[in-house]
Amino acid sequence: MSVSTTTASSDVALIDLLDRVIGGGVVVSGDIVIGIADVDLIYLGLRLVLAPAHEVEDSVGLTRRRST
């Protein structure tokens, strides 16, 4: 099967794209408001960044390994 015609490749591409949009790019100190349905739940003065779950999990894993 050709790479360009792999089944569901567009879904995979979309996942990779979203992963890069929130996990890549220039990091600038800023703010973020986390809210649901137009209700602000928490306001964060940022040195914190939104990251893909697997990167967070990896970070936690590293922390555990270092602590043992």
């Binding site: 949009v21 220039v26 600038v28 800023g30 973020i32």
Partner: peptide, 10 residues
């Protein structure tokens, strides 16, 4: 250079 989404400054 794309900026990571979502980054907001004052």
């Amino acid at each position: 250079l794309p900026v990571r989404f979502p980054t907001v400054v004052g």
